[in-house]
Design a protein around this nucleic acid. Structure first.
Length: 201
DNA sequence: ATGACGATTTACT
DNA sequence: GTAAATCGTCATA
């Protein structure tokens, strides 16, 4: 997807990214791909749940101020990374968090990335959840700030929902944000109801 | 330098 | 349902 498409308003883009494909090319040339089925929009300086709330501009969030199509990856809970697609007008620190994918290509590598002692992981669960998605795709802090309209390691491909799927799109409040006042209730999470890649309660 | 806190996940009672 | 894991980041000093 190009700069123009990725410069849309976050709530619009969060909805429109459903059905699009996240593509990752590993260092060894292997390709991973997944279809986006769950997203959240973060609306910038006015949004209490957003990292750039009140104009906050630290080294971590700096990529949010970059042009649409920039990746913003952050580390949290001492063990997980989450990735966003920066969007909006130039300099506007808004973004869309990727929360769930349906694995399409490179399942072997995803399994290898997610592997841990104990139980096997179902294909459907490989990229379910923002932390799991990043783990499966080997997306770390090194990719924060990457320009996904140019970078050979990570980009977005256009995709669509079938008419039947479009009818299954839902909007709900965002997950995991603390008390963000009125922003807590805003329906800025978008998901394809029924998809195995969507997080459950 | 220090302390509190996560846009989470998993395991266990 | 509850709790633990685990550390980069940032505000405070």
């Amino acid at each position: 997807m190009d700069r123009r498409a990725l410069s849309a308003d976050p709530a619009d883009l969060a909805r429109d990214l459903l059905g699009c494909v996240l593509v990752r090319v590993l260092g060894d040339g292997r390709t991973l791909a997944g279809r986006i089925v769950e997203t959240e929009a973060y609306l910038g300086v006015a949004d209490r749940a957003c990292h750039s709330f009140a104009g906050r501009r630290t080294p971590r969030v700096e990529p949010m101020y970059a042009p649409g199509g920039t990746a913003y990856v952050y580390f949290t809970y001492g063990m997980h990374c989450c990735m966003n697609v920066v969007c909006g007008k130039p300099g506007e620190p808004v973004a869309v968090l990727l929360r769930g994918l349906e694995p399409l290509e490179g399942l072997d590598a995803m399994h290898a990335h997610r592997a841990r002692a104990g139980r096997p992981i179902l294909d459907d669960a490989l990229c379910r959840g923002p932390g799991n998605l990043c783990k499966a795709f080997a997306i770390g802090l090194d990719l924060s700030g990457a320009d996904m309209t140019r970078d050979a390691r990570l980009w977005l491909a256009r995709g669509s929902l079938t008419p039947a799927e479009s009818r299954r799109v839902r909007a709900t409040p965002r997950v995991g944000i603390g008390d963000a006042g009125a922003w807590t209730k805003r329906r800025l999470r978008f998901l394809l109801d029924g998809s195995p890649g969507v997080t459950r309660a």
